[in-house]
């Protein structure tokens, strides 16, 4: 347990010290959302209708930017080899690193979404739900993304490859996240979509470390 916490706190400390990853993700998120009204014109009704979708898709893309570094920085400086000789199983190493990615990137992006909602004339009543679904959905983004990061560890231009591998896997998260916000399904439908979103996140927290650890073992040969 202390090894898990040591790794988690080391990764969080590195995220703060290096700073670049979070700044890039937040900056990218803001720019994409800012550019959209410029492209679409100032039709406030249209903007408020598409706002949740735009905020979600831009969040996925912004999170992808920093996923490439989850394992590659440790691989390049030899840290990953040493991490593998620890008593901590590789699955938990992946878990700690994906959790650190969620805390250092997923949560800040979710916190930023309501602010950007202002730019898109998002209805005030949708704010709590938007923030709630993003907080519930971002763990799935970090953990599924960790599998993509592990698979592309040694690939040339791995960052672009991750997007191709991982974006299709984000579809369920996106669908249920949107279903919960849009309220097209009525109050009970919103609740069930929200619960499915949480289930997706929990399932990926459990299953993705297994896949990512297997990929890492293969890559380290």
């Amino acid at each position: 347990m202390s090894a898990f916490l040591a790794l988690l706190s080391r990764d969080l400390r590195l995220a703060v010290r290096q700073g670049g990853a979070l700044g890039t993700a937040l900056g990218f998120y803001m720019l994409v959302v800012t550019l959209l009204p410029l492209g679409l014109g100032a039709d406030l009704n249209l903007l408020s209708r598409i706002a949740p979708g735009v905020l979600w898709i831009a969040l996925l893309l912004a999170a992808l930017l920093s996923l490439g570094r989850v394992f590659s920085s440790d691989y390049e400086d030899g840290t990953l080899d040493v991490l593998a000789t620890g008593r901590l199983p590789m699955e938990l190493v992946v878990g700690a690193k994906a959790l650190a990615h969620w805390i250092s990137t997923g949560i800040p992006l979710a916190l930023m979404a309501p602010v950007l909602g202002l730019l898109l004339n998002l209805e005030l009543s949708a704010y709590p739900l938007l923030f709630g679904t993003m907080l519930a959905g971002t763990p799935a983004i970090s953990f599924i993304g960790a599998v993509g990061a592990a698979l592309t560890l040694r690939a040339y231009r791995g960052g672009l490859l991750i997007a191709l591998l991982v974006l299709p896997l984000y579809v369920p998260t996106l669908i249920f996240g949107m279903a919960a916000i849009n309220g097209l399904l009525g109050a009970s439908g919103t609740m069930s979509a929200f619960l499915i979103l949480i289930a997706l996140s929990l399932a990926s927290v459990v299953l993705c470390p297994l896949a990512a650890a297997a990929a890492l073992r293969l890559q380290m040969q």
Binding site: R17, G78, D81
Partner: peptide, 10 residues
């Protein structure tokens, strides 16, 4: 190994 496993920011 050949790589030292050092984090330059720490």
């Amino acid at each position: 190994g050949h790589l030292d496993g050092i984090k330059t920011h720490l």
